[in-house]
Structure formats: structure tokens, C-alpha cells
């Protein structure tokens, strides 16, 4: 077995040996702290705590047969047409010329506050007439040239006011007539 030499260095370290200078064991920590906080700052700024959120969408099942389409009362319906240049056109009812004139109007989308009164107005009208806000039906028919942002904004507004029944749809030639009449400053009236 090996034995540890514990005698302490032997004769060299005698009483008259050179005195080693006693160094302080304290180290100046300031630069280290600096570095530490610099890195913390970096990681704090690059960390993304907030993940993007998602908005869930429920689409009605695709129907192959025309006759399965539900028939609803025109007075329950508000139709919304996101248009180009942040505009959105809307009208109540079917918009069919045979059902009498529809008043079509547009608001600017860049202020989302604009659209909310229209939605709440429709909800309260339906509530007055049919007893429940849940009966209100919103048809969304975005124009192809409208921006996806507008669609999301509109969906968001509909979610906020608590709309239960909304149907994204294709828009019909009749809708484009309504809008183009509105662009010309006319009310959409039944053709004579």
C-alpha cells in the first residue's frame, strides 16, 4: 500500500525560507456580472413568450344536393361582402330584386369599430322580431380581390359580438349588380 506523505514538504520549507506573499482569494466579480446580465438581456429579448394564437373556424359540411339547402326567412339575414380597398358592403335580406329594393351600404374596414354597430343592430332587430339573437344569420361573401386580413377582421368581429350562425358563401351575380349600383350612387331597385 502506498502511503501519503504528510510531512509537509520536508526540509526545504524551513523557518528561513522565502515568505510567499499571501494573496487575497477575492476576485473582482464585476466584469463577470456584467457579462452575465448582458447575456440575460440577450436571451430575454430573443425569447418569444407569446405564441401566435389561432382562431377556430367551423364550416358547414359541403352539400352536394341543391335541395338540401335550408330555406330561411329573409328578415333574419344580413349579408356582408368584403370588397377591395378595405371596404365592406352589406345589406339586409335577400337582395333579390323580386323581394323589393334593398338598401346597400358600405363602410370602411380600416376601423373595425365601424362594422360592429351594423352587426349589433342586426342582432337586436332579429331579437325584437323573433325573440332570440341566435336566429340571426350572417352570410359572408368575400370578393376574390378582397384581402384575407379583412376576412379575418370580420370573423373576429362576428366572434366578439357572439354570432352563432354565419355562413361563408360564394357571391352571386346579383350581389355584384347590387354593389355596382351602389357604386354608381343608386339604390338597388327592381328592374322595370
Amino acid at each position: 500500500m502506498a502511503e501519503l506523505d504528510t510531512s509537509g514538504g520536508g526540509k526545504h520549507k524551513g523557518a528561513g525560507g522565502p515568505k510567499s506573499k499571501k494573496m487575497s482569494t477575492r476576485v473582482d466579480m464585476t466584469p463577470m456580472v456584467d457579462l452575465g446580465f448582458l447575456l440575460i438581456t440577450f436571451f430575454m429579448l430573443t425569447t418569444t413568450f407569446n405564441k401566435p394564437q389561432a382562431m377556430s373556424q367551423n364550416f358547414p359540411e359541403k352539400q352536394d344536393k341543391k335541395d338540401e339547402e335550408a330555406v330561411v326567412k329573409a328578415s333574419k339575414v344580413l349579408q356582408l361582402i368584403p370588397w377591395e380597398n378595405n371596404k365592406i358592403y352589406y345589406f339586409f335580406g335577400t337582395g333579390n330584386p323580386s323581394d323589393g329594393p334593398s338598401i346597400i351600404d358600405s363602410v370602411d374596414f380600416s376601423v373595425t369599430k365601424n362594422i360592429r354597430p351594423i352587426l349589433t343592430k342586426h342582432l337586436s332587430q332579429v331579437k325584437a322580431k323573433f325573440g332570440s339573437e341566435d336566429d340571426a344569420i350572417f352570410l359572408i361573401k368575400p370578393k376574390d380581390k378582397s384581402k384575407f386580413k379583412n376576412y379575418v377582421d370580420l370573423m373576429d368581429e362576428l366572434n366578439i359580438v357572439g354570432v352563432k350562425r354565419l355562413v361563408p358563401m360564394e357571391w352571386t351575380p346579383n350581389d355584384s349588380i347590387l354593389v355596382s349600383n351602389s357604386l354608381k350612387g343608386l339604390m338597388a331597385a327592381p328592374p322595370q
Binding site: M55, S56, K113
Partner: peptide, 21 residues
């Protein structure tokens, strides 16, 4: 028929960021 649209978060309350041009 059910999917999710990814959006960034909007500030709460009445969010009116832009002014109409």
C-alpha cells in the same frame, strides 16, 4: 370542416389602431 386560422394577438379592449384615410 374545422380548422384554425393563425393570427397574431391584438391588444384587448376596443382595438382601433388606424385612422380612416
Amino acid at each position: 370542416n374545422k380548422f384554425n386560422i393563425i393570427t397574431s394577438m391584438e391588444a384587448g379592449g376596443v382595438a382601433v389602431a388606424e385612422t380612416p384615410k
